[in-house]
């Protein structure tokens, strides 16, 4: 009897988990208004030589922006603080793309590079559709 209950509990937990994942992992594309953009602020820590931090960060961003099909706006990649970089993507990302981009940037995609997303928000021309 105990085993049956434990098995049922495991099955229910797995089902709930999959149900949650189903909604979170959707790759629905929502059309963004013309002129929208997404600003990203990233804290980057590195275990290599500090001189290559920016280069590695650029590589990570170049990889991840391909997933969401958005371009980094020219000359928007700036170093805000020590180990903190910012850049702008255009067109703006919808909710699902933002999740995907955040996951890609936070992931261990580049060895010896860890990135923490501080800000990731989409700004529309109307100004009332910004979302984090």
């Amino acid at each position: 009897m105990k085993r049956v209950i434990a098995g049922l509990a495991a099955a229910v937990l797995t089902g709930i988990g999959i149900w949650l994942l189903r909604s979170e992992l959707m790759t629905v594309s929502i059309q963004q208004p013309e002129g929208s953009y997404t600003d990203v602020v990233l804290e980057v820590s590195i275990r290599e030589d500090e001189a290559v931090r920016e280069e590695m960060a650029r590589g990570l961003i170049s990889t991840c922006r391909l997933l969401v099909n958005a371009d980094v706006v020219e000359d928007t990649f700036v170093t805000v603080d020590d180990g903190v970089v910012a850049f702008r993507l255009r067109p703006g990302l919808d909710e699902f793309d933002r999740r995907e981009l955040r996951g890609c940037l936070s992931d261990t995609r580049v060895q010896h590079l860890l990135a923490d997303v501080r800000t990731l928000e989409t700004i529309t021309p109307e100004g009332d559709d910004s979302s984090r």
């Binding site: 992992l25 999740r99 995907e100 996951g103 261990t108 995609r109």
Partner: peptide, 15 residues
């Protein structure tokens, strides 16, 4: 495993 998939962190999820 669920958490990393939920966060779209596929490399961590694989590991």
């Amino acid at each position: 495993l669920f958490v990393y998939i939920y966060r779209w962190e596929w490399h961590r999820a694989l590991l």
